[in-house]
Nucleic acid binder design. Structure first.
Lengths: 217, 217
DNA sequence: ATAATTTTTTAGATTTGTCTAAATTTTTAG
DNA sequence: CTAAAAATTTAGACAAATCTAAAAAATTAT
């Protein structure tokens, strides 16, 4: 059994390590944990003692198989709770992150199995992120960033890679929510902003916004 | 904002203090918290500094108005989550306590309001305990212990005052669940055990069990 | 009322997760 | 290739919540 804090470290290391996994740097973890590098070093040593990460001084950390399993399970819980909050309690997609951040640490395998069933085994969370099944497996999705599309390309909005409330509210206001069909009209040379059509409206998004919208063509 | 641990102390002091509230002893808290009296003294001082309890050395603690408000809110959350677990996720009444014990510390007023609404504003939890509304108000229920009844008395099972899985499973097996009508047939002189009729069956319960069954006559 | 028992508190130590400041290692630039 | 910069680790300290052992206060029993 891990502490609340250990779980958060594992989750962040998981998110930062990518696929295939790359050694994660101390500073990167510190920034995400809103803490100092020295504290991260301390915690990493503890996780290494517990065989949840492989750690070589000055060379970053990687999750071990058990560490990864724990992390994926936390991600599973987080995403299932987000579905619950949006589908059952009518929260908006920009309101659920902080609450799910707490709920993901509730410890009961039975609870999560039943929640999964209650929600009819959803495959994706309200932001389009895939939900691992109880064995930790999920489709590694292959959506591409809106910024990779060219003039004339069409596609469906399948997810977002940024979960801040400000960003999500902005998308909502523009009508750019999951499942929407879009077509690229123009990519501005000057600042890389993207002009697109969605639901018969012409919408302009900055490159910074476009970067975080994931598309299936 | 209180820590997880402070919240547990407040909740336990609340449960031990009764109505009208009586000063709660250090040892009683220690037993419920599965900790030592010395630790309780330390924590009580901390809660007193925060004005959540009134504390006089060697004379126990009482909740202040803010302390009571916090405690009642935790009780509200605990009981609402129990309803959710039983009504929506099909847990049995003896399986929900430990999970609700974790969920009660999730911090989001909005979440609880919406959960309450999702559950259609239940008045009682799966054990018959009243659920405080968002202002902390609830019917102080006036059910009596089964042991207070006399031969020939009839009544309805409205609640239980013991939440251990062993006790609840036992009642379930006997068919003595909430809402069941019962009639006292006999009270045994020797050990105080109670013979009763419920659903056309003759059932015998020990005095220890009877003590924890709450009846409306 | 005083002795014995029980309850409670104090003192000092421990663990967890954090911090600052200084030292060390690695990386980058010239 | 070496000097400067950046990243990381170590050392030592702190707050929270707990503990054990011993001291103090309150209760009870004779």
């Amino acid at each position: 059994m891990q502490s609340f804090t250990e779980e958060n470290y594992l989750k962040i290391i998981y998110h930062l390590s990518g696929t295939p996994d790359i050694a994660v740097q101390t500073n990167a973890i510190a920034e995400r944990m809103q803490t100092k590098a020295a504290s991260v070093t301390d915690m990493i040593k503890k996780l290494a003692d517990k065989k949840l990460v492989d750690y070589v001084k000055y060379q970053g950390v990687k999750l071990t198989a058990p560490g990864r399993k724990t992390a994926v399970n936390i991600v599973r819980k987080h995403r299932l709770w987000e579905v619950f909050l949006v589908e059952k309690l009518n929260f908006k997609w920009d309101e659920v992150h902080d609450i799910a951040e707490q709920l993901e640490h509730i410890n009961s395998a039975e609870l999560i199995e039943r929640l999964d069933e209650f929600l009819a085994f959803p495959k994706n969370d309200p932001h389009g992120d895939p939900i691992p099944d109880k064995n930790g497996r999920f489709d590694s999705y292959s959506f591409i960033k809106l910024t990779k599309l060219n003039k004339g390309d069409q596609g469906l909005i399948m997810g977002v890679s940024e979960h801040s409330s400000a960003f999500l509210k902005h998308l909502e206001k523009l009508g750019l929510t999951l499942g929407k069909q879009i077509e690229i009209m123009e990519i501005t040379d000057f600042d890389g902003s993207v002009e697109l059509y969605a639901e018969n409206k012409k919408i302009s998004v900055s490159r910074e916004v476009a970067k975080h919208i994931l598309i299936k063509t």
